[in-house]
Amino acid sequence: MTSQRTGTVARALRRSPLGLAGGVLLVLLAGFCFLGPLIYPTNQTDVDLVNAALPPGPGYPLGTDTNGFDVLGRLMAGGQVSLQIGLLAAIFATTIGTLYGAVAGLAGGVVDGFLMRLVDVMLSVPFLFFVLILSARFHANALSLSLVIGGFSWLVSARLVRGEVLTLRVREFVLAAKVMGASRTRLILTHLIPNALGVIIVNITFQVADAVLVVAALGFLGFGLTYPTADWGSQLASGVTYISADYWWLIYPVGGCIVLTVLALNLLADALRDAIGRRAD
């Protein structure tokens, strides 16, 4: 089953040059963030006022920020945190959403109706509004931010998985398993979720992209992570403060990283979605 799925992914990428480009770009960005510091180590904790806000030049390929941190090194550090939060939030959201959607879809009837109306209600809560209220009271760290973002992002996954389960639950192999006395837990974990994995994988890719954007938005609004932790959104917010001072190197590199990451994830997800759609057809 796994090799078959891997093959599907590989075929999807071969058939979609854009998807392949997205995948390659994502690998490059991840390598930049996680392996880059090994090649280009920088001090991202000690403020250097003498060398603050320097434009790109010798010794500082992308300049320094207003605290004297090397911008290239900070992009790497910030990228690590942003990608980690994105991935963690996506895993959390997809896990909750998948289980929730599978239970609702399999149960059907009143239980399904109740669970999905609950999802509708939660979808009506403005996410940023809620997070800003939370952030006024509590201090965010990478883990809590991931959980909060994930805690709001599982709703879409739940809807998608529930829809998939509604089609799967009347298929012969599920009915056969039921006749053979399989419990509901077994049906969900062994038969339904594995067969909805295509939808889940596509969704998790989008979830990562969404979470990266949310982290950036929160940082931009001034409620992201604070020193000594760096994230792309906070970097961008800090840079925008000085846009009038023409410190362009504080804005474009980090803005470019956010755009490229989201673009790469979307291209990849797009290719996977197309591949899974074809297989279903």
């Binding site: 434009p55 410190y247 362009w248 474009y252 803005g255 490229l260 673009l263």
Partner: peptide
């Protein structure tokens, strides 16, 4: 929608990338 936003942002970035003055 996402792709449109991402691409628009990329174009904006490129279009404005030359306006910076530098520090001194």
């Amino acid at each position: 929608g996402r792709l449109s936003v991402a691409l628009a942002a990329a174009v904006t970035l490129l279009a404005t990338a030359c306006t910076g003055g530098g520090g001194g």
